[in-house]
Design a protein around this nucleic acid. Structure first.
Lengths: 154, 154
DNA sequence: ATAGGTGCAAAAGATTTGCAACTGG
DNA sequence: CCAGTTGCAAATCTTTTGCACCTAT
């Protein structure tokens, strides 16, 4: 029901797991190839889709509509706070929201209520020290590519 | 700062406003054309992009990554609960979430924290009466197209 | 053996962009 | 007038699919 075990899939799962942040299918594919792993982009997409379906990964969409994946922590359902500058993400405590969602469901009578919650901001490391208030950049793709400089374990 | 006033833009704004639910640029374009309004799809996209930028409309992405727009209520920032069966949406009280987001921001030190919150479920009208528990459909595109039957004011 | 997996090239779709013609103020 | 708009066609870009070939089990 969940598929066969193949080197490619293991590679994708491992690559995703070793990177504690959200990555796009294409980024993941690049890394795999750079690390000498022969794998097709299509396969990466399929593997990620499988993970998503089986609940093994969380997904968000960046502003451009691209899907970003991240291995889901063992304890299930999670929401994240992403840094718009460096792309790093961290799970946040979302009990309040879970309850809120449940209350809405009860109050409205809607069935099978699901929710999507995403937080984005600029982490302390990325904040232009000294500059108060809002930073000049406005949630576009980073000027050059500092935002794509997600290191992970390569 | 917000552009020139043209019949096309007015048409888009009016069409969007007269439809109290989320619509895609393409759907909106279809309706406009069906109503005898000559307008290019490109223009609809541009008008919606403008509205989004000026805060005149809220945007969500459906499961296929398509952008759906909805006129934003006069009182600003809002979150919605969408029915996965009929596509209808309703604003929900999200003070709790707003506070929660603020708290997270303060606790983590992240700056300029923004949030995205989407709730989806099956409204009472669409719930298969008699059938308890989870409906058989699993958040795919509706079997045929009952979900696209958003009436609005045509 | 054989159902499932893989990868290439091509298809699909939504959104954007180049550009020449048009128009609100 | 003329900067801002429009709309068509063509370009982008991510994700999916057709298909022939491979490989875990």
């Amino acid at each position: 029901m969940d598929g066969r075990r193949t080197p490619q899939r293991s590679a994708v799962m491992h690559a995703l797991a070793s990177c504690q942040d959200f990555v796009s299918a294409q980024e993941l594919h690049n890394r795999l190839v750079e690390n000498g792993i022969r794998i097709g982009l299509t396969t990466v997409y399929r593997a990620l889709r499988g993970l998503e379906a089986s609940g093994g990964a969380d997904v968000v969409r960046d502003d451009a509509g691209e899907r970003l994946y991240r291995t889901r922590p063992a304890d299930g359902h999670r929401h994240y706070l992403l840094c718009r500058a460096c792309g790093r993400s961290r799970p946040v405590d979302s009990d309040v929201v879970e309850e809120w969602a449940g209350r809405i469901a009860a109050a409205t009578g809607y069935a099978a209520v699901e929710h999507t919650v995403e937080l984005t901001g600029v982490c302390t490391t990325c904040q232009p020290s000294g500059a108060e208030g809002e930073p000049p950049w406005h949630w576009e793709h980073a000027p050059d590519t500092p935002g794509r400089a997600r290191s992970c374990a390569s």
